[in-house]
Every structure is written in structure tokens, then in C-alpha cells.
Design a protein around this nucleic acid. Structure first.
Lengths: 221, 221
DNA sequence: GCCTATGAATTGTCCAACATAAAATTATAT
DNA sequence: ATATAATTTTATGTTGGACAATTCATAGGC
């Protein structure tokens, strides 16, 4: 840029400071007024720079303590994706395809790591989905059901990807449920998946999950 | 949250406004004072919210015009990861685990849809990786190699997710390559994967891909 | 030694003002 | 009449100051 703003300048200064002093997660930054004094600017300018860093998930501010270095970049990315709302209808197919890749791909890990508690949670979520009042609530429970399965694996990147695709998936589920006459069908499919997980039946899991993710498809378009 | 800050509230309001009025890239937002007036807050609070949106790459501000919706999310993410110094072993495991889920999960589709041209591209990229000058260029070719495999499937969500994770993966690859003595090892592993794709050998593909994604791990920490 | 009250420090929010840049408008010259 | 230059307008960029809210630390009481 020809004319870097003061905020950008301060951003660079803070970045250099972090590198120079080899600060890492958990380390505190100087207070806002300190930073303003050190770099010769105003507190508001520093605050805008810190807003940016908070948006990046790199710092967190704590009252009476000041800015602290953290690493919430993954959740920052998911917050970022919450703004994408224009989902083209043809992308629905892709998304279900992606989900099939992931949810069938984690099969081995799910069957290995699943605990009784996980299965309990799944049963509960499925029951809540069937008894849900409106379409939106049912879609939420449906999403949480699948997120719970992904959670069993404990891979946080996968969880993050799922979380930032949440608005997309939710929308897809809602549009599916509004056209499907009964929620019971989905409940039965979910139950079949739960059974497969309980019995650690790999082929049943993959078959039922794959079918389940495909089944909503005919209601779209 | 127990106590959502005013800035967070305004962020939500702006997001709702964007959704409600179906605003897209290129559309202007109300001016700062307007937004402050509409939602009953101060200009500084609005500015901090807009700082956040700028960090997300979702808005840009132009003098005499005001905030405008854009889509620089990709570069926003690059800026975000410019702060990451070193990659922790957990993060490495995490991301490679995700890649294994995806790249092994797409096996069937890859073997089914791969064309001679795809295999040619893979060969070329692998050769370029081996002959690359620096670590950065080698990492780029490595990334493109894997992206090309994902591309064969033609699922755009999966491609998006991969493009989205590009800075992370690239960084991870760079840090792997800087410690690995020779790039030839990777080239051989890639070649094995190419062969499996050419021969449509499912088990070879899964075995080699899984091994390949795990192999970098010993160079981290 | 533990608990409580007080005080201090820092972020969070607001206000008001001026600087700066760029678009819009008007004036001017050819 | 049109192109160009000067002016005005308008929105962001930056600064300083003020007060509220919160929370950590400390001192004092039991």
C-alpha cells in the first residue's frame, strides 16, 4: 500500500514484537495504553488492531489482565464461514458427497473409540429429533447427531470443518425435512447407524450411513 | 455467552442485515454513523465490529463511500496464518488425520473417475516437486499434487475445503520438507500412489496414501 | 490460616473533535 | 459545448478524554 493506515502499522508492530520476544500461546501482551504509548498512537487505534487480532483468533482480552496470546484460529475460521449464506442448489449434492466421504471415512476410528456414553448421546439426540417441534429444531438435532459421530473420533480439524460447514448443512437438512412427510424415517435410519456403532459392525455402518446421506437427496432439487 | 459485548451484538446485527437484505459482493453497507444510529450504539463500537469484518475479508472500507461487501476470505486466512510460528505435533497429527480421512475416503471415486490426463498431471507435478528449487516451491507442488487427486472426484465442497486449508497444509508441508534430507523419498511415495491410481488398485491406494500422510510425522517435534 | 472487604488496574463503551481522502459538484477556460 | 480545474461535501481515519464494569491483588478481621 502507498499509505498504510495507523492500524495496519500497529498490527505490524505487534506482530514484530511477538516474533522478537518469541511470545507464544498464554503469554500476555502489554496493555492497550502501554502499546499505544510504545508505538506512539492512540488507544482507539490499538483497540482496532487488537480487534483484528481477536478476529484472527490470535489474542483474547481479559479484563484487568490485558491482551493474551491464544490460538483459536480454527474457531475464527468457522466464524468467518458463518457469513457465507448463498448456497447454490447444485452445491447440495456436493455437500452430501463430502459428508459421505467424511462420515464413512471415519468409520474405523468411530467403531474403535465409541464409548457407551457416546451411544447414549446419540440415542438422546435421535429421540429429541423425532420429538422436535418445528423443522428448524429437528434439523438442529439432526446436525448435532452427525456432529456427535464426528466428535467421537476426536480429530479437531474434522470437527472444525464440520462446525464451519454448520450453516450450510443445517440449511440443507431443513430443506430436506420440510419436504419429507415424516421424521420417523430419519429416526429409523439414525437408529440403524447407532446399532451398527454399538455392534462395531463396519459394513453395516458404511452401508447405512451411505444410504442415509443419499436418501435426503431425492427431496432436493 | 453470559455477557455478549456490544461489539458482538453489532456483529450479529450486521450479519442479520446482510442476510435479510440479501446483500452480496459489491453491495454497500450503511455508513458507520448510520449503523450506529440504527442499532443504537456508538461509532467506535461499530468501527471495532467492522474491523473484525475486515479481518475476515468480508468487507472493505472506502473513503467517501463507506463499507462495501467483498470476498477476500482467502487472503484473510493467509494473513491469519502469517502469525503461526511453528506447528505443534498435535496440530500436525490433527490435520494429517483429516487429510487421511478425505484422501483415503475418496478412493473409490478417484479410481473410478481418473482419466489418463489426470495421471499425466500427477506425474508432471511430482516431477516438478522433485526438481523444485527451494522448500517453498517443493511444498507448493506437493500441495498441488494432493489437490489434483481431490480434484479428480469433482466434488466442489471437498475442493473448497482443501483450498481453504491451503495455507495450513502448505505450511505443514514446508516444515516437513525443511527437515527431511531428501525430496526423493516423497517423490517415490507419490509415484506409488500414482501407480495405484493407474492400476485402480484400491488397497494399494489406501495403504500407500495412509502411509504417506503419516510419514511426515517423524520429522516434526 | 482463611475469609471478606476494599482498592486498583484494565478492558469496554461512549462522546466529541479534527484530519484526510475521494467522490460529487461547480466554476472556468478553450 | 466540452474538457479541465477548483471547490464542496461526505465518510472514513485518528486522537484524546471520560466513565462504567469487571476482576485481580492486597490488607484487614475473624
Amino acid at each position: 500500500m502507498n499509505n498504510p493506515s495507523a492500524v495496519d502499522r500497529i498490527l505490524g508492530e505487534i506482530r514484530e514484537m511477538i516474533a522478537r520476544e518469541k511470545l507464544g500461546v498464554g503469554d500476555p501482551l502489554p496493555t492497550e495504553v502501554e502499546i499505544a504509548r510504545i508505538f506512539g498512537t492512540s488507544r482507539n487505534t490499538v483497540r482496532e488492531a487488537i480487534s483484528t487480532l481477536k478476529a484472527y483468533g490470535i489474542v483474547e482480552t481479559r479484563k484487568r489482565v490485558g491482551p493474551v496470546l491464544v490460538d483459536n484460529r480454527h474457531s475464527a475460521i468457522s466464524a468467518l464461514f458463518a457469513f457465507s449464506q448463498n448456497i447454490s442448489p447444485e452445491a447440495f449434492n456436493d455437500i452430501q458427497g463430502f459428508r459421505r466421504i467424511v462420515e464413512c471415512g471415519i468409520c474405523d476410528a468411530v467403531l474403535e473409540k465409541r464409548s457407551e456414553q457416546d451411544i447414549q448421546s446419540l440415542e438422546t439426540l435421535n429421540a429429541e429429533m423425532e420429538e422436535a417441534e418445528g423443522v428448524a429444531e429437528a434439523a438442529e438435532k439432526d446436525y448435532l447427531f452427525h456432529l456427535q459421530i464426528v466428535n467421537i473420533v476426536g480429530n479437531s480439524t474434522t470437527c472444525d470443518v464440520y462446525r464451519f460447514l454448520e450453516p450450510v448443512i443445517r440449511r440443507l437438512l431443513e430443506s430436506g425435512k420440510s419436504q419429507r412427510t415424516s421424521r420417523v424415517d430419519i429416526g429409523v435410519e439414525h437408529q440403524g447407524i447407532i446399532d451398527a456403532i454399538r455392534e462395531r459392525d463396519k459394513f453395516a455402518y458404511q452401508y447405512r450411513m451411505s444410504r442415509h446421506l443419499k436418501s435426503g437427496l431425492k427431496f432436493i432439487s
